[in-house]
């Protein structure tokens, strides 16, 4: 492509955007809003899965054994647990160790526990980690049925809620995004249609001079892509600054909430959003040109 032609395309595009400035602003706005929602819900999903993953590594279940279990039975059970495919890690916590840990937790007030060494009321237990968080509940149910097992305890409910939440966000985000994306495409299509319409005389002239369809189309395609890109830039800027401000605030007030702050990941996400903006713009202009520039 010749430099002169490139310059022609850019001048045409800018002129056209200025001519339909209000509709252009509206298209940019809709793209910005839809990508902002998309970006925010993506961040939510990322964080939800991240929290789920954190929980996953911290969620372990405690398998309390019946008091009369012999050490042979315990050994037997340990081997059985280790052989299970869903089980990632098994740790035996004896009565004595459980008591020591308890004392440690009580710190200064460990005197309360004095004398318990004689008649330790704590049961022997296994601490078990599963490979994924989804496996916790079914495995717990399965283990409850074993002979030496008295009770199985884990963060019942929390894990399930976390998973359901992240799934819900994913679906809601996807639906909103698709709807707004379609709206953005059609608004851009309308903008481009108007700009094609306002220049139909020129287009007619270009055609009898012998301009190829692509020569006629390209400035409009560029216009659509420009609108899409401008919208996504706005969205990306808003999300980026908004998110890192949020992280800053949360680290001060809610230090136990660990938000994803990996900049590379966020930047990759932003790049995707920009690309999506371009695609939305291009799609919008192609739709409106398919009608107008057939012949």
């Amino acid at each position: 492509m010749r430099l002169r032609t490139v310059r022609y395309y850019f001048c045409e595009t800018i002129q056209s955007i200025l001519r339909n400035s209000w509709l252009s602003v509206a298209s940019v706005g809709v793209v910005a809003v839809s990508l902002m929602i998309l970006g925010s819900s993506l961040l939510l999903v990322i964080n939800a899965s991240n929290m789920a993953a954190n929980l996953e590594s911290s969620v372990e279940m405690s398998l309390f054994l019946k008091d009369k279990s012999t050490s042979a039975q315990i050994k037997d059970l340990e081997d059985k647990l280790k052989a299970m495919p869903d089980v990632a890690q098994v740790e035996f916590v004896s009565k004595q160790r459980a008591l020591e840990e308890m004392k440690k937790n009580f710190g200064d007030k460990k005197d309360i526990l004095a004398g318990l060494e004689e008649k330790n009321p704590l049961p022997d237990a296994f601490r078990i980690k599963t490979r994924t968080v989804e496996q916790v509940a079914p495995l717990a149910r399965q283990l409850e049925g074993l002979a030496q097992v008295d009770q199985v305890r884990y963060g019942q409910g929390v894990v399930e809620k976390m998973l359901a939440f992240s799934r819900w966000i994913r679906v809601a985000g996807l639906v909103t995004m698709v709807l707004l994306g379609v709206a953005a495409v059609f608004l851009i299509a309308t903008t481009i249609r108007l700009s094609v319409f306002s220049r139909r005389k020129e287009i007619g002239i270009m055609k009898f001079i012998g301009a190829t369809n692509w020569f006629v189309r390209f400035p409009f395609l560029l216009e659509g892509m420009f609108l899409g890109l401008a919208g996504s830039l706005l969205a990306v800027a808003a999300i980026y600054f908004g998110y890192f401000t949020l992280i800053g605030n949360i680290q001060v007030s809610l230090p136990f909430m660990q938000l994803v702050s990996d900049r590379d990941l966020i930047i990759t996400l932003m790049e995707r959003l920009l690309l999506l903006g371009l695609v939305i713009g291009a799609a919008g202009s192609m739709i409106s040109m398919r009608k107008f520039l057939k012949a």
Binding site: I205, K207, F208, G210, N213, A295
Partner: peptide, 22 residues
């Protein structure tokens, strides 16, 4: 074919009553 039409028209010059200038 449709994509050959621009090249057909480049072999012709058109002049109209209403000039059709930009």
């Amino acid at each position: 074919r449709q994509r050959e039409v621009p090249y057909l028209r480049r072999a012709m010059g058109m002049v109209f009553q209403d000039f059709r200038l930009l």
